Simulated scan of single mutants.
Amino acid sequence: MKILVTGAAGFIGFHLCERLASRGDDVVGIDNINDYYDQRVKYGRLAYSGIAESAIEYGKTVQSSKYPNYRFVKLNLEDKEGIDNLFKAEKFDALCNLAAQAGVRYSLTNPASYVSSNIVGFVNLLEAARHNSLGNFCYASSSSVYGLNERQPFSVHDNVDHPVSLYAASKKSNELMAHTYSHLFGIPTTGLRFFTVYGPWGRPDMALFLFTKAALEGRPIDVFNYGNMQRDFTYIDDIVEGVVRVLDHPAQPNPDWSGAAPDPGTSSAPYRVYNIGNNKTVKLMDYIEALENALGVTIEKNLLPIQPGDVPSTWANVSDLVKDFDYKPETTVQEGVNRFIAWYREFFKV
């Protein structure tokens, strides 16, 4: 297939491009390479995939030196003309939208960036898909959409109308907009609610990266909710495997769907939503212990109150993923943390 991956310099996007290019798909990656976090990591990811930083210019297609079937373009999702021209020129079979302004806490102080990227940019992609006969529209949602929900494990068949951050609200809006385009124009859309993704080449603003940097520098770490947070930590390779399976199987209408008892996770249109998580909830203190084991150190901890926008616990019900794709993530936290530390030491030479 010819596949467009947005957010190709990002954590998940980079890994997905590697996987798709390795198996022989014709891949075009786009990213605006913004400065939300350390751009060295973004350019490092691209360089690993054969995209030289020195060759990157806005709107210019750069051929990978590693994969003959991978090309990269620096482009903003908000650039409607640029997105439209790219779709018209390339005639994509499928799209995986992983580009977004990420981060719950950042959304408390920089709300406008979430509207421009996650709302305006998303509509631009939907419009391009509509006018260019795209066969499969896959996009990143988030476990954050579950918000105030307390019934666990979180199910895609539960209502998610009570987000607690603008980031979560923007992801929920993506699901609603995608459904509209599936219903009106028959575009197969699949939303993927990722649960706390971690692993090599991860985001520097996330806990594992911050904890590792502090530990290696001999500094204490901030542990919110007094260490009582629980997360469904999901290793990056497991996330990518789920994404690839969805890209290979566009959403289908649910013939049993009823407007009298509407199921939020499916539709009479070709629309689906899936959780991709490890199907286990892990105490944050156990996650930190796995990091201590990998580093061979004891980390000093500052126990602090929960922060606005955070939820105390996440846990993914992945029964639909198993039923429809015969797949569920399996990597253990200790195994995943060990792999991250091996990468971190090599990349930062520490």
Rank of each mutant, 00 (worst) to 15 (best):
L4F: 11
V5I: 13
L16F: 08
E18H: 15
V28C: 10
N32F: 15
Y36R: 11
Q39F: 01
V41N: 03
G44A: 01
Q63F: 03
K66R: 15
L75S: 09
E81G: 08
G82L: 11
L86E: 05
F87H: 12
T109E: 14
G121Q: 04
E127D: 14
A128Y: 10
N132R: 14
N132W: 14
L134D: 03
F137C: 09
V145Q: 03
V156G: 01
N159K: 11
H162L: 09
P163M: 01
V164C: 06
A169Q: 03
K171T: 07
S173K: 07
N174P: 01
L176R: 14
L184I: 14
P188D: 06
T190C: 14
G191F: 08
R193A: 03
V197I: 08
G199N: 09
D205S: 14
M206G: 00
T212I: 05
K213M: 07
L216W: 08
G218V: 09
V223S: 02
N225V: 00
D232A: 05
D232Y: 09
Y235V: 02
T266V: 15
R272K: 10
R272G: 02
N275A: 05
V282M: 13
K283T: 00
K283D: 04
A290E: 10
E292K: 05
A294Y: 09
T314A: 01
N317D: 15
D320Q: 14
D320R: 15
Q334L: 10
E335P: 03
V337A: 12
A342N: 13
F348L: 12
